[in-house]
Simulated assay, not measured.
Amino acid sequence: MTTATTPECFVQLSDPHIVIKGRLLMGQVDTAAFLARAVAHVCALPARPSHVLITGDLVERGGLDEYAHLRELLAPLPCPVLLMPGNHDAVPTLRQAFADHGYLSSTPLEPALSGFALYAASLGSRRLLALDTVVPGKPHGSLCAARLGWLRAQLEAAPDTPTVVAMHHPPFTTGIRHMDGMGLREGADELEALIAQHPQVERSLCGHLHRPITRRFGGTVAMTAPSAAHQITLGLAPDSPPSFIFEPPGYYVHTVQDGQLVTHLHPVGDFGEAQLFR
């Protein structure tokens, strides 16, 4: 008789955009309440994740008070949290607020890299390579030669280890024009060519778009995650105005099945109790 085992998994949250206590984002979005519900949802998962990865736009303005609020909201999570910056974040303040997260300051002290939060970490049996795509003070992203060189060296160092590459800005266009205009403007082609040379890369995980979007990329699968709060409207017409919508928030559960990474989109909300098939 065989005994079923709980599958290995990790969670990807994205774009919580936390503001200081007592405020609403844009005067309308209670991002703290949204994140609290998402955290409770993760805590209730039947399979406990090994880690929670948050792919950027952790807070709205990069302020120390916002990061303190974020810490409180993430505290109930039952596993380690791995943080990544987005265009709304400030790496120096993020490092100060999460000084106990040593990986955020683990970048080699090269002049071209010291201002970026680049790191390698374990996600159970998978290796995470976190790329910082932020251009300080700008909404769009970039991957310069130095950051791509760091990634190349990391991939060459462990060619046989299943690997996840994560970044905030997706390295592909989506058809949502106002968001594509603030996507990864430099380095996307070089990144795709580099990943294509390393078949150990199973996923390229991104945030920024506030929607679940998937595309083939460099021989792997590139994905953007939904926001833990508000979603970007699916406006694919060329003249679609920039807007957001209160579609259900959600997150990804990345689980290992038969040695392969399988991804599930898990919406957050009250959908009633599960009903047994009869």
Rank of each mutant, 00 (worst) to 15 (best):
E60K: 08
R61F: 02
R61V: 02
G62P: 06
G63T: 12
G63Y: 11
L64R: 10
D65P: 02
D65I: 00
D65K: 06
D65R: 07
D65A: 11
A68S: 10
A68Y: 01
H69F: 04
H69S: 09
L70Y: 08
L70K: 11
L70W: 09
R71V: 00
E72S: 10
E72Q: 11
L73A: 00
L73G: 01
L73H: 00
A75M: 00
A75H: 04
A75P: 00
P76K: 03
L77M: 08
P80F: 05
P80L: 05
P80N: 08
V81M: 14
L82M: 09
L82W: 01
L82V: 06
L82S: 07
G86C: 07
N87S: 13
A90R: 12
A90P: 00
A90F: 05
V91L: 02
V91T: 07
P92N: 05
T93W: 14
T93C: 13
Q96M: 04
Q96E: 05
F98S: 02
A99R: 13
A99N: 07
G102V: 01
G102W: 02
G102K: 00
Y103F: 10
Y103L: 07
Y103P: 01
L104V: 04
L104S: 01
S105G: 14
T107R: 05
P108E: 11
P108D: 07
L109F: 04
L109S: 13
E110T: 15
P111R: 12
P111D: 08
P111L: 10
A112G: 10
L113K: 10
S114W: 03
G115S: 05
G115K: 01
G115I: 04
A117S: 07
L118R: 00
Y119L: 02
A120R: 12
A121C: 00
S122E: 15
S122R: 15
L123N: 00
G124T: 11
S125V: 08
R126S: 12
R126D: 08
R127D: 15
L131M: 11
L131C: 02
L131F: 07
D132H: 06
D132I: 08
T133R: 04
V134M: 13
V134R: 15
P136F: 04
P136A: 06
G137V: 06
P139W: 04
P139C: 03
G141N: 05
S142Y: 03
C144W: 03
C144T: 09
A145I: 00
A146M: 06
R147V: 09
R147I: 09
R147P: 15
R147W: 14
L148N: 12
G149I: 15
G149Y: 12
G149M: 10
L151M: 10
L151Y: 09
L151P: 11
L151F: 09
R152N: 11
R152G: 01
A153S: 11
Q154E: 14
Q154D: 03
Q154A: 14
L155D: 00
E156Y: 02
E156N: 14
